[in-house]
Amino acid sequence: MPFFDLSLIFEPAKQKGKQPNEISSPERHSLEARIDALVHLGYTVIAINHVVQSKFQQPAPDFGLRKRDGVIILRRLTIVLDEASEKGFGLTNNNASSLASYDIISLLPTTQTSFSLACLTHSMPGPLTAHIISLDLSSQPRLPFYLKHTLIRTAIRNGAVFEIPYAPALSPNDEHKRRNWWANAREVARVTHGKSILLSGGGQTIADLRAPLDVANVATLLGIAQNLARDALSTTPKSLVLRAQTRKTYRAVLSEPKLMLPSSTQRFFLGLDTNRYVNCRASGDGSHVYGRTSRSSHFAAAYRK
């Protein structure tokens, strides 16, 4: 199973005389170095996380990164929602074309109102869905709002995931940050029961990166079950990335299945040939039939998602 790190932070430095949609060469070097380190640690899918404060205005520049074999690099947008952004933060149809350059959109609410907005409105399927709800786990000893069960449940049903970035747990010089992280990450793990959780980096430097299974082990110390902790780095982000692709398709259709009529032998195994089906059942061999039906209903369920 490939491992995913969906948060390689890119915060463009504000400099005078520099276009905001330009990437400077030290910034690119830092990104390249961190990607190399992540690849060495065993990640194969990496999302560069462009963080903007309170309002989305213009897309990140083309990073112009080196191509690497077997490594997928995605683009992700995170909008930090504060009080100023409660009236609107740029996730509108006017911006749809510039938002289409991102593979994943995520929101980081810091107020109660913006949190319920993120959970209820912006997790609904559509071209502007925010699939990741990220929370600031390290700046305050307790989260600024209560994680209401109904909100969390709605968001998860709509297909959103909650992100736990592990970088603050490693901050060597700030013990408040670490303490807050342990308390708040535990809270997130508690309300989600360990499911629909995404573990990701979220660090600014190479020193903040860790190998996937090490991160999963730290997550078990938060009270997440072993298998779920591992899923939070592999299966959850994988299905998330797939789901995020549906932003760009018509009515979230990913592929067009073709109807192929089965031949008579296949009809027999599918249980469509009633005469033979009865015989088959009489001989006590109905396993094919049940196997098929359950699998097809599984597909149907996957489709409805």
């Binding site: 490693l170 020193a207 299974l213 730290v218």
Partner: peptide
């Protein structure tokens, strides 16, 4: 995992 440095030099521990 949470070790950040040995002797004041930074390292990434990887299991």
């Amino acid at each position: 995992t949470l070790i950040t440095s040995l002797d004041g030099f930074r390292y990434i521990p990887r299991t």
